[in-house]
C-alpha cells in the first residue's frame, strides 16, 4: 500500500512536470519569435535598447584558452573527473573557468562595438570534448600540463584517473550573432579594464619567458619592485590598445550587455536561421512532450488507482 502511494506521488510529480514543460515550450516560442521579429542593426546605426547584431568577433585583449592554449576572444572550460562509487557513478567538476568578465568586440562593415558577455546565454559548440585516462591509460601531455598547473592529481595506482575535458571559445574573425541590450558605457568600463588586466596577468604568469623577462636582475626571484614595473607596463599596453580601439570604434560610448529590463542576451556562433531552427525544435519538443508526459502520468495514476479499487 505504502509503495503504491509512493508510486502515485512520484507519477503526480511527473504529471506536474508535463505542465511545466508545456509552458516552457511557450516561453521558447516567445524567444524564437523575438529573434525572428528583431531586425539586424549595423554598428553605425546602433540605438539604445534591445538590438540584434551580426558580425565577426574581435578581441579586446588576445586571450588563450587554458586547455588547448588557442588564441581567442572569449572562452569557457570545464574539467570533470569520473568518480566510481558502488551505486552512483558520476562526473564531478574539478575545474571550471571562463573569460566572461573580459569584453570583446563585434565588428561589421560599418564599425565595431563592445560586447560584455557576462550573464549571456552562449550558443556555441564544444571545440574540445575529450574523455581520456582510466585503467592502464595515459593522458596526452598537453592535458597533463593543464592538470598539473591547476594542482589536479591525475595518477592512480594503475594508470590515470578518468577525465572529461570540455572547452569552448570564439576565435578572432569568427562570425557571431548577438541579441542584447545596447546601453551607454559608464564607470563600469573601468572595472572591465581591470578585469582585462587581471586576465592578462594570469596568462602571462604561466609564461616562463615573460617571468624571465621581468626578472631584470636575473636572480630567479621576482621582487615587488620588478612585479610593479611589469604590471605598469602591461597596464600601459592595455591602455594604448584601448585608445586604438576607441578611435576605430564607431559605436564608442555604447556597449552590449544584459539589461535588467530585458530577459534575453544571446551570443552565438551559429547564424540566425540555425538559432531559430534550434529554438523551434526545443519549442516543439516541450509543447508536445509536456502534454504527452502529463497524459502518460495521469493514465498510470488512474490505472494504479483502479487497481487499488478506487473506481469500483
Amino acid at each position: 500500500m505504502e509503495n503504491n502511494i509512493d508510486d502515485i506521488i512520484g507519477t503526480a510529480v511527473i504529471f506536474i512536470m508535463g505542465f511545466i514543460f508545456f509552458f516552457y515550450g511557450f516561453m521558447q516560442l516567445r524567444r524564437k519569435r523575438l529573434i525572428e521579429d528583431m531586425p539586424t542593426s549595423t554598428v553605425r546605426g546602433l540605438a539604445l535598447g534591445l538590438v540584434e547584431l551580426q558580425g565577426v568577433a574581435r578581441p579586446s585583449i588576445i586571450l588563450r584558452s587554458p586547455i588547448t592554449l588557442t588564441e581567442c576572444c572569449v572562452y569557457e572550460y570545464k574539467v570533470e573527473q569520473y568518480c566510481e562509487h558502488r551505486k552512483d557513478d558520476k562526473w564531478v567538476t574539478v575545474a571550471y573557468g571562463n573569460s566572461f568578465k573580459v569584453p570583446f568586440y563585434l565588428e561589421d562593415k560599418t564599425g565595431k562595438v563592445k560586447i560584455c558577455p557576462e550573464e549571456a546565454e552562449m550558443l556555441w559548440s564544444d571545440r574540445l570534448s575529450y574523455i581520456t585516462g582510466g585503467f592502464r591509460k595515459q593522458i596526452p601531455d598537453f592535458l597533463t600540463t593543464f592538470l598539473e598547473k591547476n594542482g589536479i592529481k591525475y595518477r592512480s595506482w594503475l594508470g590515470t584517473k578518468k577525465f572529461r575535458f570540455t572547452e569552448r571559445y570564439f576565435l578572432e574573425g569568427e562570425p557571431i550573432y548577438v541579441l542584447g541590450t545596447a546601453v551607454p558605457e559608464n564607470e563600469q568600463s573601468l572595472e572591465v579594464d581591470k578585469q582585462c588586466l587581471i586576465q592578462r596577468l594570469e596568462e602571462l604568469k604561466s609564461d616562463p619567458q615573460w617571468i624571465k623577462q621581468i626578472d631584470t636582475n636575473q636572480d630567479g626571484y621576482i621582487s615587488q619592485e620588478e612585479w610593479d614595473k611589469a604590471v605598469a607596463q602591461i597596464e600601459s599596453e592595455l591602455l594604448s590598445s584601448a585608445i586604438k580601439d576607441s578611435s576605430l570604434d564607431n559605436a564608442s560610448g555604447i556597449k552590449i550587455c544584459k539589461a535588467n529590463s530585458e530577459e534575453v542576451f544571446i551570443i552565438g556562433t551559429e547564424n540566425q536561421h540555425l538559432i531559430i531552427k534550434n529554438f523551434s525544435w526545443d519549442m516543439l519538443k516541450y509543447l508536445l512532450g509536456g502534454p504527452l508526459l502529463s497524459l502518460g502520468a495521469l493514465g498510470y495514476i488512474l490505472w494504479r488507482l483502479k487497481g487499488m479499487g478506487f473506481f469500483n
Binding site: F22, F23, F26, L29, L287, P291, S294, L295, L298, G299, L302, W303, K306, F311
Partner: peptide
C-alpha cells in the same frame, strides 16, 4: 472513467494551448 478523464486532460491542453498561443 479513465478514458473520459484522459479526454478531459487532452481538451484542457488544447484549450490552454490555443489561449496561450
Amino acid at each position: 472513467m479513465v478514458i473520459s478523464v484522459m479526454l478531459w486532460l487532452v481538451l484542457i491542453f488544447v484549450a490552454l494551448g490555443i489561449i496561450i498561443y
